[in-house]
Every structure is written in structure tokens, then in C-alpha cells.
Amino acid sequence: MPVPKDDFDELLPCDFPTPEKLLEPDQMYTLYEIARLMQGLDADAALEESTEAVLLDWAIPWIVYNGDDLVIAEPQSDDEPGYYGVKNAE
């Protein structure tokens, strides 16, 4: 159910970094790594499962929104996630 804006103490701008600013051009990242990087964490930072789920709520729309600027690679094995990277990386 929607919540009135007045119910919140602070409203922040929804400013996300571009793929070029978030990702190294010669690297590929999993969704989980991107979620961590978006929060200023190391890509391999240990997180509780509940925290990781919240971060994914931000990372999934970021990937969809920036899809035109990203490339995708298949998982390296059946039990791993896929990878994303900056499209114009050479």
C-alpha cells in the first residue's frame, strides 16, 4: 500500500552511477557484485542474506535501466550467476 511522503523524515534523490563510473571497463561482474559496488562496498564483501536481498532490489532495476550500456556473459558453470560488463569496453 502506498505511504505518504510526509511519513518519511528524509527523501533522497534517486541518483545512480552510470555503468562507466561503477564498473571497470575490462571486468565482468555478477549481479551480486554490482549490488555491493552500488553501495560503496567491495565486490566480494560478505553480507547477510537479508542485506543482500535488499541490495538486489536496487541492482536489478539498475541493470534493466542501463541495459543498453551493458554486455552479458553466460555463467561459467550451471551453479553460478551470469556476468555483466560495460558495453564499450575494449
Rank of each mutant, 00 (worst) to 15 (best):
I34K: 01
A35S: 11
T51L: 10
L22F: 02
P75M: 03
E90T: 12
L37F: 03
D42A: 14
V71T: 13
P17F: 05
E90I: 08
A45P: 03
Y84S: 01
D78E: 15
P2D: 13
T51G: 06
E10W: 08
Q27A: 11
M1G: 14
E52L: 14
Y84N: 00
G85P: 06
F8D: 05
L41H: 10
P75D: 05
G67D: 15
L12S: 09
M1P: 07
V86R: 01
E49Y: 08
L22D: 02
L22C: 04
A43I: 03
E49R: 14
D9M: 11
Q27K: 15
Q39I: 01
P4T: 10
I63F: 03
E33S: 07
L56W: 00
V86T: 05
L41S: 00
A43T: 04
P81N: 05
P61I: 03
T18S: 15
P19D: 06
M38W: 02
G82Q: 07
V64K: 14
L37K: 12
A43Q: 12
P19Q: 05
P17L: 04
Y29W: 08
Y65I: 14
L70S: 01
T51Q: 13
L70Y: 05
N66M: 03
P13R: 06
D15G: 07
P61S: 05
D57H: 11
A59M: 05
T18M: 06
L12T: 08
F8R: 01
A46Q: 14
K21F: 06
A45T: 12
Q39R: 15
V64L: 11
P17H: 04
E20N: 06
E10Q: 14
K5L: 14
Y32P: 00
D69L: 12
